[in-house]
Nucleic acid binder design. Structure first.
Lengths: 217, 217
DNA sequence: CGTGGGCTTGATAGTCCTCAAGTCGGGTGG
DNA sequence: CCACCCGACTTGAGGACTATCAAGCCCACG
C-alpha cells in the first residue's frame, strides 16, 4: 500500500519482527503505548466491542498494510486488532510520525492517504450494512476482499484465499453465523459463489458484482 | 476543531464564502474538482447512495469542521455532502495540502488527525449499527450529537439543537422513518429523551447513556 | 478414543419493514 | 383572507427478514 520509495524509510524505522498464530491480540482497545506494525505475511482484522458485548469487525488488514496509524495519530486507541491467520509483521518506531511529517512530506502525504483510504473502506461497509440485505452484504464482502487481493497481483482469476470463519463474516456484516451459513448456501445453490476450504471461488462474477452493487470492470 | 494557530493559515487560504439553504448539495459523489470547505454556521451531512438507491448518512458536520479532507487526499470523492440546515461556509484553496505538508508540519499533523477523528466516529457508528437495536442506535445518535455540541461550549445542560428530520435519523441509523418515530415514542414514554421543535431534551441522562453504551462522565 | 470447536440445520419468535391512510402545519396563489 | 397543496409526521395492520435456541455432525487435536 505504500510505494517503493517510502519503503526505505519505513524499513529504516523497523524495530523488530513479530510472528503470531491465528486469533491473537496485537493491539487492545484502550491501550496507551500504541503499537505500530506493518504486515509482512498473513491477515489481521480491526474490531470494536459494543457495550452489549457484541463484536463488530471494522476492517480486514492485508499484507503490506499498516496497523495502528489511526491510533498513533489520535493518541488513544478505540479499537482492537487480532491476527486472522498466522501473521508476521514488523513493529515500527512511533517516531515515524515526527520524522515523516517534519522532513518527509511525501511520506506524510502517503500516510495520510492510507488513513483516508481505510476510512473510505469503512464508509463503504457502513453503507452496505445500513442499506443492504444479507445476500448483498455477503456479495460485497466477497468482491471487496477479492479485489484487494487481485490489486496486489498474482491471483487466479475468480479464485482467491478467503481465510474468514463464519463468525468473522457475521461480525463484519452485522449478521449471525447461522444466517451467514444459510446465505452462503443460497449463493452456492444459485451458482454465484462458493467458499470451500478457506478459498473463495467466484462462479458468476457479473451476478456477484451486481449483488454487491459494484461495477463489473 | 482546528486550533488557533492553524486558523491563520487556513484563513489565508480562504477563497470565498458561500451560503446555502437547507438540503442543498455541496459536493456530489464522483466529482473530480473536489471542493474543500470550512463550516462557519449550520450543519451538513455526508452520505453515500447504495446501488439499490438507499441512502446512508455517514457523518454529520458541525461548525468549525472541514468538508472534503478525505476527498482531497484521495483525489476522487466517494460520497456526497448536503446542507442539513441553512449553512454558511468558506471555500478553501485545495493547495492547502501542498503548503501544509511541505512547510507546516504541525498543520499537516492536525489535518491528518482531523481525518482520523472522523474515521473513528464512523467506526463507532458502524459498530452501533452492526450490534445494536433501534432504541440503542437512537440513544447513541442523541448522545453523540449532544456531546459534539457541548464540547464546543455554551450548551444548556440536557438540551441542545437537533435539526435532524426523521428521515435523517433513519438514514443515519439504518432504520426507516416510521420505525424512528415509534422508537422516539418509546423514549418519550419512558421519559428518557424527547425531540421537540428540532431540539433534543434529555430527561434521564444516565439511562440514555446506558442505552447508548457510553460512560456517563 | 474422547473432546472441543466450528459448521450445519430446523423450528420458533422478534424486530423491523412495507404500505397505506390520515393528521398537521406552513407556504402559495387566488 | 381564505382555499389549496405539499411535505413531514403519525399510526395501524400485515409480512419479510433475521435472530435465537437447540441439536446433530464432522474434523482436528490431544
Amino acid at each position: 500500500m505504500l510505494g517503493d520509495s517510502a519503503g526505505s524509510l519505513v524499513d529504516s524505522l523497523t524495530l523488530r519482527s513479530i510472528a503470531l498464530p491465528p486469533n491473537r491480540v496485537l493491539v487492545s482497545e484502550g491501550e496507551v503505548g500504541v503499537g505500530l506494525f506493518r504486515i509482512a505475511r498473513g491477515w489481521a482484522y480491526r474490531y470494536r466491542t459494543s457495550a452489549n458485548g457484541c463484536r463488530q469487525i471494522i476492517d480486514f488488514l492485508l499484507p503490506g498494510e499498516i496497523i495502528g496509524l489511526q491510533a498513533a495519530l489520535l493518541g488513544a486507541i478505540e479499537h482492537s486488532v487480532r491476527s486472522l491467520t498466522t501473521l508476521s509483521a514488523s513493529a515500527l518506531d512511533a517516531k515515524l510520525f515526527g520524522v515523516a511529517f517534519r522532513s518527509e512530506p511525501d511520506l506524510a502525504v502517503r500516510l495520510a492517504r492510507h488513513v483516508a483510504a481505510e476510512a473510505s473502506r469503512v464508509d463503504e461497509l457502513l453503507t452496505v450494512i445500513g442499506c443492504c440485505d444479507a445476500v448483498e452484504r455477503l456479495a460485497f464482502l466477497m468482491i471487496s476482499l477479492y479485489r484487494r487481493q487481485s490489486g496486489r497481483g498474482k491471483i487466479d482469476p475468480l479464485d482467491c484465499p478467503f481465510p474468514l470463519r463464519r463468525q468473522h463474516m457475521a461480525d463484519a456484516l452485522g449478521l449471525t453465523g447461522a444466517h451467514i451459513n444459510r446465505t452462503l448456501n443460497r449463493l452456492r445453490a444459485d451458482d454465484i459463489a462458493v467458499i470451500h476450504d478457506h478459498h473463495l471461488s467466484i462462479r458468476d462474477f457479473p451476478r456477484l458484482a451486481a449483488l454487491a452493487g459494484t461495477a463489473v470492470p
